[in-house]
Computed example of a mutant assay.
Amino acid sequence: MTSTSVTDDLDTAGPADLAQRIRTAILGGDFAPHQRLIEADLSERFSETRAAVRTALLTLAGEGLVERLPNRGARVRAITVDEAIEIVEVRVGLESLCARKAAENIEDDDIAVLRELRGDIEDAVRSGDLVEYSRLNQELDRRVRELSGHATAMQLLERLRAQSARHQFRLAFHPGRATQSAPEHIAIIDAIISRDPDAAEVATRAHLAGIVRVLRTTT
């Protein structure tokens, strides 16, 4: 009985883990937009069965990262700038909700972590390390979502952010963007550690509005 249960857990965990590994490869730029995702190649690369690869690709297609082509398999879906803008507009409500909840839920230990992250963001911008700055932004987003404790918003945001991740990464390297967005991120942190839900929501909405403005200049 116990052995059957363990096997079932492994069987259900495998495809999810593989989907995450392929997702990471796509978001990391290992696969370009419109690039074909050949099951045999992915099977060899990730040391998984073709059936597991097929299941993972179906999961990623449901997230909008991959598109299925009739009789041609799958390829990386290219997200247009207009789509990226729409995604950010949808994120406004969800992320401002998470920021409010984070400000309401934050504990003293969490405040210490966010203060350290705040300093790291300032250091990255000061030194011009845009790759590190982009990573820290993602870390901040993740921590705010976790602090919110809002499972539904977290799940929806994971899917939305995955679809627009390429555009988000490029924004970090947009001329002057880091010096503009860093104070926005710091305002969000300061509002949350001050346990001020209203200020956290306002700061989050202002930050995302800035992203939309920059994206519109790239169309």
Rank of each mutant, 00 (worst) to 15 (best):
L42K: 10
V131D: 07
L160V: 08
G128R: 06
A61N: 15
L136G: 03
G73W: 11
D196F: 12
A99S: 06
T204V: 11
H207N: 14
M1T: 13
I189S: 00
D109Q: 13
E86R: 10
V6E: 12
S127F: 12
Q20P: 03
R126M: 07
V113P: 03
R126A: 10
R50L: 06
A165Q: 13
L156V: 04
P175M: 03
L140N: 07
S127G: 03
H174K: 14
C98M: 14
L171W: 11
H174G: 08
R118V: 02
L136N: 02
L171E: 12
Q180M: 07
A151K: 05
N137L: 03
L114Y: 08
A102Y: 06
L171K: 11
D11L: 14
I22G: 01
G14F: 15
V90I: 15
R100P: 06
T12A: 13
L157A: 03
I87A: 05
R205K: 13
R45S: 03
I22A: 01
S47P: 02
L10R: 12
L94C: 05
S181D: 05
T152K: 01
V6W: 10
T55A: 14
T24A: 13
R68P: 07
A74H: 14
E67P: 06
L117P: 03
D9I: 12
T217P: 05
E39V: 14
A19T: 03
L160N: 10
H167Y: 01
R72D: 15
P15S: 09
Q168W: 09
F169S: 13
R161Y: 07
L156M: 07
D9H: 12
A162F: 00
A103K: 00
R23Y: 04
A151F: 04
R145V: 04
S181R: 01
S96Y: 10
T152Q: 02
T59K: 05
E39K: 13
D196A: 12
A52V: 14
